[in-house]
Write a protein that binds this DNA or RNA. Sequence first.
DNA 1: GGCTTTATGTGCGCTACCGCACTGACGACA
DNA 2: TGTCGTCAGTGCGGTAGCGCACATAAAGCC
Lengths: 276, 276
Amino acid sequence: MMLLMTDQNSLWQNHLLNSLSAANYERFFPHLELVRMSLGDVLYESGDEVRYAYFPTNCIVSLVYVMESGAPAEIAVVGDDGMIGVSLFMGGGTMPNRAVVRSAGYAYRLRASILMQEFNRFGGYRNGALHNLLLRYTQTLLTQIAQTAACNRHHFVDQQLCRWLLLSLDRLHSNELVTTQELIANMLGVRREGITEAAGKLQQAKLINCRRGHITVLDRQGLEARACECYQVIKTESDRLLPSLQSASLMTHIPLQKCGLVKKCELLSNRHDWMK
Amino acid sequence: MMLLMTDQNSLWQNHLLNSLSAANYERFFPHLELVRMSLGDVLYESGDEVRYAYFPTNCIVSLVYVMESGAPAEIAVVGDDGMIGVSLFMGGGTMPNRAVVRSAGYAYRLRASILMQEFNRFGGYRNGALHNLLLRYTQTLLTQIAQTAACNRHHFVDQQLCRWLLLSLDRLHSNELVTTQELIANMLGVRREGITEAAGKLQQAKLINCRRGHITVLDRQGLEARACECYQVIKTESDRLLPSLQSASLMTHIPLQKCGLVKKCELLSNRHDWMK
DNA sequence: GGCTTTATGTGCGCTACCGCACTGACGACA
DNA sequence: TGTCGTCAGTGCGGTAGCGCACATAAAGCC
């Protein structure tokens, strides 16, 4: 808990939660739990009833479709800009994909029922800020997935790697990713050796630096220049639909230690074979 | 107009409209226009403010992302099971892709303001049937797009062609598609010759029959067996979230000629170079 | 019926990426 | 400090799909 009271508070925020109205926020607050998310934790499995909505802070969660062959494919990536569990309010309750933690950290979570109640809250003609915010977020998710589809079809592995690194970078608070090349390969649905080669090129161009299990970004602009258009499309749409992400934060004004205890997220399973 | 009064009424329905409550339906009815949709009509361009929601009956509309290179990529396909213009109620107003008619026919359309008003209609705790219906539909769209992403990454052109044919077939009311191989190639984002080859194989296997600009499906089950898993995932999720699509229809009980006049859809432009 | 337009079929060299087998080496941990 | 598991790098043959250049033929159009 002490960690939470340091000046690193900015590391423990989620921009969707931040941009809630004070009223919404007050109602959520008592129900928010800060949970630890470890690499490989599965938040929901394909077809599982979603029990919690997760709002990542400094972790990254991937939505992954697992092919019948067992090969994974990353559909979208969620960080402190978003939430896991849109099927709760979209009405399906489940999704035909898996949500898995691919970069460890912390997230706030909320019981499904609490989120639903707030989403559907009375407001005369629907004007619920939360309702609109979550739908706008869902549209950015839609765009991200659509862009992934196009990107998978047309762009080279090098470009896709740049996109992937940039999307990850935007959701972390550091220029260092803790990831193996094999994990990246699984996310992009390509061969591990393909990533080795692409990363090698980027390293030669002094854009990144690779260590065993670590990738440090040296030249962000250079990466952007080398990435395919998809990164910018996703980013632009996200900035457009969720401008509040840059605005002042409520959460910094409410002592975080009032929030539910930090607990290890008790999940379905911690599958370290999740890429298989 | 006479066409509308024949016993072919079943051709002129949209399942989302059909599954509206009577009250919703009554309010929509005066505002529905039946419009003709020609091949290549663009319903909205990437970034355009959406002015109408379209509910296809016997036509097919593709959501297409056009790469900077000019190469198109189909993101999702919409027929009488869905609608065009989810960004209206999702809050974005625009989308970074294009909606284009890829199989001619008719659609009902509704001014954006009418749809919005109904979507946001007062209902105490949100219980609007339309609200929930459209969100569930949007989730199926999300699934379709996600599946496209995975499919683009992992499956062979042959399998993708089967998926594409099946998705088209489900949205038409005939076993004959009026399409060129070049159009299919553009939708799948592959080479025209690739489609020629794949279609050749399917023809040899007696699954389809190709004529100039026409593809007739001979053996639907055979196609399903040859398609990748993606088709079933999309179909299953759609059936789960929109079971009403199989239920009785209100529209058959309301004389269709009371509906707004059939008019040629005056659109942005009829771009026959839309694949370029 | 003859002409043009447009869709389809084919061949050929090329490239991005795959699958596999193997080497090397970093870094955690005893 | 030494050991060992895991991660990164390399080489090689194979292949799905690309880009291009044509030949062929079906449908539409005077």
